[in-house]
Amino acid sequence: MTMIRMTGIRRGTLPMAVLAVLAAGCGTQRSGDAADAYRKSHPTPTGISTPSTPADFACPGESAPSTPTPTASVTPAPGDHYAENHGFRVPFELHGKHRCDGLAAIKRVKSALEPLRKRGDFTPEGTLSALTGLGYPAGKTRSYQDGSGVGFLIEADAWPVCVEGTMNSTATRADAFGGYPDHTGCETPSGGH
C-alpha cells in the first residue's frame, strides 16, 4: 500500500491561497477620498433615479421661499454614534404645499395666542382653549407649562403637519415640521427602531 505524505509546505498552500484572495478583496466599497473619486469618475446612469431635495415655491403672502438656515454640523468623534442613534428624534422638514400649510398654521396660531400673551394669560388651559377654538381637535392639541410661559404642540393635519412652540411675555414662537421617522403623529418619540 502506498501512502501519500503531505509535507508542511503543501499543507500551508491552501490556507495561504485563501488568505491572499481575502486580503485582495473582491468588493467595490471604498472609503474616504477614494469613494469620492470613484463617484466622480463613475456617475449614476441616467435610467436610475436618485433622491433629490424637493423644490419649494413661494407660499401665499410670502415673497420668496425661505432658504433653510444651515445648521452647524458637528462631526462626532470616532466611535461616537449619538447622532446616528438619535436620528429618530430629528423631525422632517416641510416642503412644497405642506410647507405652505405649515406657514399658514403658524400664522393662525400666533394670531390666536397674541391676545393671551398681551393679557399675560400663560396658562395651559387658556392656550388649549384658544387652539381648539381654531378648530384643532383637543385630542391632537397639547399645552403645558414651560418655564415662565406655556408650550404647545398641535397635529394640524393628518399628513402630519405639526406646529410646536412657546408663548411667554416676550413673544410667541412657533415652528412647523412634518413628524418624525419611524413614528406617527407629532409627539417626540422616546425610542428608536
Rank of each mutant, 00 (worst) to 15 (best):
T123Q: 03
R173I: 15
G79R: 11
P45N: 01
A158S: 15
P43W: 09
A158H: 13
G147N: 08
A20M: 11
R119T: 14
E155S: 09
P15S: 06
H95V: 12
L14R: 14
H193Y: 08
T7D: 00
T2P: 14
A176P: 04
S190D: 07
D56T: 06
P70F: 09
A77V: 14
E62F: 13
G87Y: 08
R5W: 01
K140T: 12
I154A: 01
K118T: 15
Y82C: 07
T28H: 10
A104T: 06
Y136H: 06
G165Q: 02
P54A: 01
H193E: 00
L113P: 12
T50S: 05
A158C: 08
A138I: 11
M6S: 10
G139P: 06
T7W: 01
V74C: 03
P43S: 02
S41A: 13
K118F: 12
P124Q: 11
L22N: 07
A17K: 09
R142G: 00
G126Y: 08
T67F: 10
A176F: 08
G149P: 09
G139Y: 12
D182K: 00
D121N: 09
L128E: 08
K40W: 10
G96K: 04
N85C: 10
P189Q: 01
S129E: 15
D101C: 08
N85M: 11
T123F: 09
T172C: 05
P43Y: 06
A20E: 07
P15I: 11
C186A: 09
T132W: 13
T50C: 01
P54L: 02
P189D: 00
I106R: 08
S63Q: 14
G192S: 00
H193D: 01
I9C: 00
G47P: 08
S190A: 11
K118L: 15
K97A: 11
N168C: 07
R142A: 05
A17Y: 06
P65K: 04
G61N: 03
T46L: 12
T7C: 00
G126V: 08
P115Q: 02
F122P: 04
P15T: 09
T123I: 07
A77N: 14
Y136P: 04
